[in-house]
């Protein structure tokens, strides 16, 4: 429903930041963002307003979360194994 695109702040002048979207730059307003923004920060832009400063560590954090899903730190690996066992019951070690 809401098209949001991340970009990197190039410069800030008052309540307007120039943001690089990896190809084009555009002015993005800063009235709504909830933390101070400076050059080098990542922001989430929606209709010309920054609605979030994206902390760099949270980008890595999100990736780590997905990796953990794949590694099965949650319960996923167990589900995976269960699925295989249920799909092929005759291949259990006893058979």
């Amino acid at each position: 429903m809401c098209l949001g695109v991340p970009g990197r702040v190039v410069s800030v002048e008052g309540l307007v930041a120039t943001v690089d979207f990896w190809g084009v730059r555009r002015a993005v307003r800063l009235e709504l963002v909830d933390e101070p923004v400076q050059a080098g920060d990542y922001v989430l832009n929606h209709v010309g307003f920054a609605i979030r400063r994206i902390p760099e560590e949270d980008i890595q954090g999100t990736l780590d979360l997905y990796e953990s899903l794949l590694r099965g730190d949650g319960d996923l690996m167990a589900a995976d194994v269960r699925a295989e066992l249920e799909a092929n019951p005759e291949q259990s070690p006893d058979a």
Binding site: L3, V5, F21, W22, G23, V24, R26, N45
Partner: peptide
């Protein structure tokens, strides 16, 4: 083009 890609995403 990188600029077209960026603009079309925006």
């Amino acid at each position: 083009n990188a600029a077209v890609r960026a603009a079309s995403e925006l």
